[in-house]
Simulated assay, not measured.
Amino acid sequence: MRVGVPIFLFLAAAGFHTALTASLESAEKEDTFGEEVGLEQLSDLQKRDQEEFEAAQMSEAVQDENTEEENDTQEEDMNRDGNVEADQHESESDEDVDGMRQKREQLEANVEEADETTNLGSPRLPG
């Protein structure tokens, strides 16, 4: 029995060592697997974030283009409206000038008639 106790203790320690080693290797594999899965998930998240970021940038670019087009259209409309108003103002000015010419011509004609009437009614003095 003296020989059996040390053998028994040796076998128990060897078994305990084997079980402990297997447990540690299993834990390491789980950690490595967890890290790999974590990296894959992180990579997927990064890809998704990058895609969303690019989509947001494209959306902003489209909105900027639309805003620029709207501004250009508004500027063209304002220029066109300004040109129409200027044309209307010019035509109004032309009408005013024409009306003034007619009035002046009428006044000149009236003054000439008045001069003729005055000249006919008053005797001429020899000069």
Score class of each variant (00 low, 15 high):
75 E>Q: 12
89 H>I: 04
27 A>N: 10
14 A>R: 01
66 N>F: 10
74 Q>D: 03
61 A>H: 09
58 M>R: 15
66 N>A: 07
27 A>Y: 12
91 S>F: 14
99 G>N: 06
66 N>I: 04
107 L>Y: 12
80 R>F: 07
88 Q>I: 05
103 K>C: 05
32 T>P: 00
45 L>W: 05
75 E>M: 10
58 M>E: 08
62 V>N: 06
14 A>W: 11
20 L>R: 05
36 E>N: 05
80 R>Y: 08
76 E>T: 13
17 H>P: 00
107 L>C: 05
49 D>M: 08
90 E>V: 07
102 Q>S: 10
107 L>T: 07
85 E>N: 11
46 Q>R: 01
87 D>L: 00
54 E>K: 08
53 F>R: 05
19 A>M: 01
65 E>W: 13
84 V>F: 01
51 E>I: 01
40 E>W: 03
71 N>F: 14
33 F>P: 00
100 M>H: 13
14 A>C: 03
29 K>L: 03
86 A>E: 04
43 S>Q: 09
55 A>E: 12
67 T>S: 13
86 A>Y: 06
34 G>N: 14
36 E>F: 04
102 Q>R: 06
77 D>E: 02
91 S>Y: 15
74 Q>M: 05
97 V>F: 13
32 T>E: 15
71 N>A: 05
65 E>I: 03
16 F>L: 15
66 N>E: 05
99 G>E: 07
47 K>R: 14
38 G>L: 03
104 R>Q: 14
79 N>G: 12
78 M>E: 06
58 M>S: 10
100 M>W: 13
73 T>P: 00
46 Q>D: 11
107 L>M: 09
14 A>Q: 02
62 V>G: 03
81 D>F: 14
41 Q>R: 02
49 D>Y: 07
48 R>D: 12
73 T>N: 09
81 D>A: 10
96 D>N: 12
101 R>M: 14
45 L>P: 00
86 A>P: 00
28 E>H: 03
17 H>M: 05
26 S>H: 02
41 Q>H: 01
89 H>F: 15
106 Q>V: 15
65 E>N: 12
105 E>Y: 01
40 E>Y: 06
90 E>W: 01
23 S>N: 08
